[in-house]
Amino acid sequence: MNSYFGGGEDGGGFVGGSQGGSQTARPINDESLRPVTIKQLIDAEQAFGDAPFRIDGVEIKQVTLVGMVRQISPQTTNITYRLDDGTGIIEVKQWLDADKQDDSSRRTFREEEYVRVWGRLKSYGNKRHVGAHVIKPVADINEVNYHMLECTYVHLFFTKGDPAAAAGGGGAAGGDEDSMFVDGGYGANADDKTRGYSAKAKKMYNHLNNSIGNNEGTNMHVIAQETGMSIQDVMAAAEELLGHGAIYTTLDDETFAILDCY
């Protein structure tokens, strides 16, 4: 996708969608666009009737979503689509421009066809819908999965923080924008990985993490000796770490190593 705004005359460069179907010239180039799921739109917070919607505590303006057309209801001034993306169902209204005589403003889509929508979340009569600026068919089914991954990434960005910041502003990656894909990226340090673990589990994990050059793992008796933990504490920590998939057994049931892909 070269542009979330659809590009060309389809995008229009304006925000349409008053309830009466009139078009209001309002530039959208300076407004952010957020990929969302339908559940996020349904759960979006709104302080009062005319207040902006917020997702993850952040105000949303333009949104884009991908879903399957479940129902089509043509009207005189608009076409209403019921869109389903697996997380929920919402109505998408595409207002018809009477001044346009070309087919693009009146194109309809088939039921059970995947489409991408660019628009704005609205509420009318306590019922939410998306006022669409642009609707286009999904040419590649991989776009459906891509959109869900993008929604997840943006959600984590706003709830967990900037991945680059989580790596210490880029750390060893030197601020490279691809640092989230290499060592030193998001969640790469031991503190992030052991967040929520017990003190014993953290101690054992950190010891294993700092045991460089030992591909065969470390025996529980060695761990106990070098960390000052009792065998019982090491066993309890190992059980917790195994349950989280953070470590695995190597030579035997008493020898452990860090799971590198964790």
Rank of each mutant, 00 (worst) to 15 (best):
F53W: 04
T76I: 07
G13M: 00
T77S: 11
H155P: 07
R106L: 05
V69I: 08
R54K: 12
F158H: 13
L83N: 03
E150F: 09
Q75C: 02
Q62K: 14
D99W: 09
R26W: 11
S104D: 14
G243Q: 02
L156G: 08
G185N: 04
G11E: 00
S18Q: 07
D50T: 12
R34A: 09
A257K: 15
G196E: 10
L96W: 04
G217F: 03
G88N: 01
I38E: 00
T76N: 10
M220H: 12
G88T: 07
D30G: 06
D10P: 00
R120G: 07
A172E: 11
Y4K: 08
G11P: 00
I55T: 06
E254G: 11
K202M: 09
G131C: 07
E9R: 14
E239R: 13
E113R: 14
P27S: 11
G11Y: 01
M220D: 15
V130P: 04
L65Q: 02
R195P: 02
E112Q: 15
E254P: 01
A165L: 14
G171P: 04
A166N: 12
I60Q: 03
S73E: 08
Y81P: 05
T76G: 06
D10S: 14
D85C: 05
G171A: 07
T77W: 10
G49Y: 05
L33R: 10
G57A: 01
G228D: 00
V138G: 01
A166C: 10
Y153H: 13
T37E: 09
Q232L: 08
N2G: 15
A190K: 10
V69G: 02
G86Y: 00
G185C: 02
V58I: 12
T249N: 14
P35Q: 02
R54V: 03
I223K: 06
L241Y: 01
M204F: 05
P52R: 03
A188I: 00
K202Y: 06
G161P: 08
M68I: 10
T108W: 05
L96D: 00
F109A: 02
N126A: 13
G17T: 03
E9C: 12
G196R: 14
C151D: 01
E150S: 13
A51W: 00
G185K: 03
